[in-house]
């Protein structure tokens, strides 16, 4: 029996965001307050992809990613999606690890990535174990 859920990913976990940066071969996120071109100010974890004039600022309270790429002139807009993709994958991996589930990762032809999660010794009902930030990488 089965069901399908669509989720709007929210980047609220600093450990998963750091793991996402490692996955994308980026420097770890840094806590910063950034003033964008329109003078809006955002504080949060800043990720600096190559070629970006302004960093992508992650507000871990709301999970929103703030950026200004000026129609692609100040950075590749698609990279914001790739950062969110990497975040979701790493967050799901952390969740699986905390619950003792097994994960297999498959890259799909369209650039999507699929994680196949199967039960560990405790089945799918196991209580989560807490993870420290250092275990996230």
């Amino acid at each position: 029996m089965s069901h399908l859920v669509t989720v709007a990913a929210k980047a609220t976990d600093p450990a998963a965001l750091a793991a996402a940066c490692t996955r994308l071969k980026l420097p770890p996120p840094q806590t910063e307050t950034v003033t964008f071109f329109d003078r809006s100010v955002q504080s949060g974890l800043a990720v600096r992809p190559p070629g970006f004039v302004y960093p992508i600022v992650c507000d871990v309270e709301t999970g929103e990613l703030h950026h200004d790429v000026y129609e692609g002139r100040w950075g590749d807009e698609s990279f914001v999606g790739r950062l969110l993709q990497a975040y979701a994958l790493e967050k799901a991996r952390l969740q699986a690890r905390a619950r003792g589930h097994r994960v297999a990762e498959t890259a799909l032809a369209d650039g999507s990535v699929r994680l196949t999660v199967t039960a560990g010794p405790m089945g799918f009902g196991g209580a989560p174990q807490s993870l420290t930030t250092g275990e996230a990488a």
């Binding site: 990913a9 999606g81 969110l84 993709q85 979701a88 799909l108 369209d110 650039g111 699929r114 994680l115």
Partner: peptide, 8 residues
């Protein structure tokens, strides 16, 4: 199965 597109 958790599938994430390049757009997140």
């Amino acid at each position: 199965e958790i599938t994430v597109t390049p757009a997140g």
